[in-house]
Design a protein around this nucleic acid. Structure first.
Lengths: 207, 207
DNA sequence: ACCTGAACACCGTTCAAGT
DNA sequence: ACCTGAACACCGTTCAAGT
């Protein structure tokens, strides 16, 4: 049943994962799913955990390379989400507590520990970086589901902005170039570098 | 009509903002709304922009206080979102381009400029910090709509985790204390400090 | 005891018919 | 010309009835 849900998710995105669609995939009616899951939210939670469980954790944490390893893990997480359009909405809506998610969180903490990051900073950082990764993946999935390319987005942003009074927003006007520059990957990589640099330059939160 | 929508939003959250509910607020049928908006997404976009327009931008950017001003602005944005449960999902789903949102973005850029931040860094940073603010606000709204308190969340995280094999997730086990410590506000403040410190310690992205 | 057909109470959106 | 009642094509979930 989980597999049927994941098939629908991969093929048509999270909004297409209706109880009826998953039931149809199993040649039965929607009521039958309630034998296995409590409700649709429960099904989506299970599906997210399955996606998390499929993520390659990479090599064991190496103190001399923890940063590169952490960034590489983040890219693989986004990749897994991109293969399952919209699933990133699930961890945004509630803290995931399944095995698959725990596995990824535990490895993330292990990498931060390999980097000698303070315990409390590490614990709070994982929330910040997860929010960033999930929000990025969710945004990407929306653009993909609308069939929007990056060029289209930039073009539309410029168009929408052109409709606003330029002199009312001088900074947006002046920075329109940088604002629409770079690919999604480049921007994500910049944000990730920024987050880790921030972690390394912020005192641990007071206990 | 926008006002009717905002009333429903404030009272019952974004999921309750159905075409039927907004129409009922106006003593008419759902079909009548289509005279003013193209569809529900359009209505929600307009509502988000109205919320953004209501945000107090605070005093003019001061180069000696730009950082405190930027943080204070971020808090006010989250506050406005918290008063309109779930509206933060809108800017997560697509780049907002209305007047209200442009106003806030322009002020954010002005503050970064007052802090002498590189143009390209500022332009890319605004995406990162917006994602962080919106994702935080969205998460908060979900907990509130479920009537969940912070204590309940921590308790449930501990419970859920207790069901997992402790020895399989040694880092989560070891850090359970820090992981469930602090209030939502403290964690948000830490993340915001971290983001700004990251900005100040990351070279601008290459052109 | 287990599964599910049919029904219930909702949705967003369309369009023909009314004013 | 403008507005909208009624209908269409969907939802998630429940529960009585079947096996």
């Amino acid at each position: 049943m989980l597999e049927a849900g994941l098939r629908v998710l991969r093929a048509k995105g999270i909004d297409a994962v209706t109880m009826r669609a998953v039931a149809a995939e199993l040649d039965t009616g929607p009521a039958s799913l309630y034998v296995y899951v409590a409700n649709r939210k429960d099904l989506l939670d299970l599906m997210f955990d399955a996606v998390a469980a499929s993520i390659d954790l990479g090599p064991e944490p190496d103190p001399t390379q923890w940063r590169e390893q952490l960034e590489a893990l983040a890219y693989r997480i986004v990749e897994a989400m991109d293969d399952h359009p919209g699933i990133a909405r699930v961890p945004l809506a509630n803290v995931p507590t399944g095995q698959g998610a725990a596995r990824v969180a535990d490895r993330t903490l292990a990498l931060l520990r390999a980097g000698d990051v303070d315990d409390r900073s590490a614990a709070w950082f994982i929330d910040v970086v997860s929010l960033y990764i999930n929000a990025t993946a969710y945004e990407t999935s929306i653009y993909m589901s609308e069939g929007t390319t990056e060029d289209n987005i930039d073009e539309q942003i410029r168009d929408d902005f052109a409709r606003l009074a330029a002199d009312e927003f001088p900074n947006l006007t002046r920075l329109m170039g940088p604002l629409t520059s770079g690919t999604g990957e480049e921007r994500f990589a910049f944000g990730l570098r920024l987050l880790i640099n921030g972690l390394l330059n912020t005192p641990p939160p007071p206990a």
